[in-house]
Design a protein around this nucleic acid. Structure first.
Lengths: 134, 134
DNA sequence: ATTTATACTTACCGAAAAGAGAGTGTGGAC
DNA sequence: GTCCACACTCTCTTTTCGGTAAGTATAAAT
């Protein structure tokens, strides 16, 4: 496929109002951050997770960020948070249908990134090499 | 479609190594920011743009951010930057095939967001209302 | 001689995000 | 009585982000 024909395909997408554009952009950048995506991935695979489980699965995250990210996802209707009134506390998270839909939509980007990350790394090396020769 | 069957679909995706996971996550969060997405959209529509044109099309952006974002995109191989040695300077940007591929992959997310932003806003209202009653 | 156009680059500053690490509540095991 | 488990929550510090505004280079137009 050439750049030209691919672009023609893309051009046929429906135009949207600038207002919707802004909303959509805001939602995407809200949702397309590192931890949110990782959590969506984990919750897609595991169905239902406790806080500590997510904490261990999401290596590198701090408790603070995990709480914050989960709260934002709950607020946006992507996950449900179920608290069991027991001691020690037990809280379960799972994706809603909305969250699963997003997970599916992201698959395209995920696949693209998987298929092309070597190209990107090569581009970065080329760029660095070019910069060095100047 | 139920949550269960949708999840089953998603589960059939190939597993990837944690290393690739990290790379892919890094690339996506690199690429999924507000300005990069907007620029990809504009360049998908307009094919070829000068700096000033992008500056005007991307309302709200500062010159600094525009330069920075374009440089990052160039570094990642998403756009080409062509400098014409004339005065006043003339520089043209256009998406590479890699950039167009990303544009296409993001369409899915874009469509999802377009189709569901009202649901998200409703979820946010519900969440705010619930928080207020406590 | 001065202004204009273009595409930056640089310096500075405040705001916002994020990490580290300690603290909290409570019931049951020891 | 003490400790542990779990899911936070709070504070403090560091890092990063992003905006403003000024500066640069140069040829042509006035």
């Amino acid at each position: 496929m050439t750049a030209g024909s691919l672009r023609d395909d893309l051009k046929t997408l429906p135009d949207t109002s600038p207002e919707v554009d802004r909303l959509v952009t805001e939602i995407i950048s809200r949702v397309a951050d590192k931890w949110t995506m990782l959590l969506i991935e984990i919750l897609t695979e595991r169905e239902c997770c406790r806080f500590g489980e997510l904490f261990r699965a999401c290596e590198g995250i701090s408790q603070k960020m995990l709480t914050q990210t989960l709260r934002a996802m709950e607020r946006d209707g992507l996950v449900t948070r179920t608290v069991y009134p027991v001691v020690p506390p037990k809280v379960e998270y799972r994706l809603t249908d909305l969250g699963l839909g997003l997970s599916k939509a992201f698959c395209g980007v995920w696949h693209w990134a998987e298929a092309h990350f070597e190209q990107i790394e090569q581009a970065r090396r080329d760029y660095a090499a070019k910069a060095e020769n100047e």
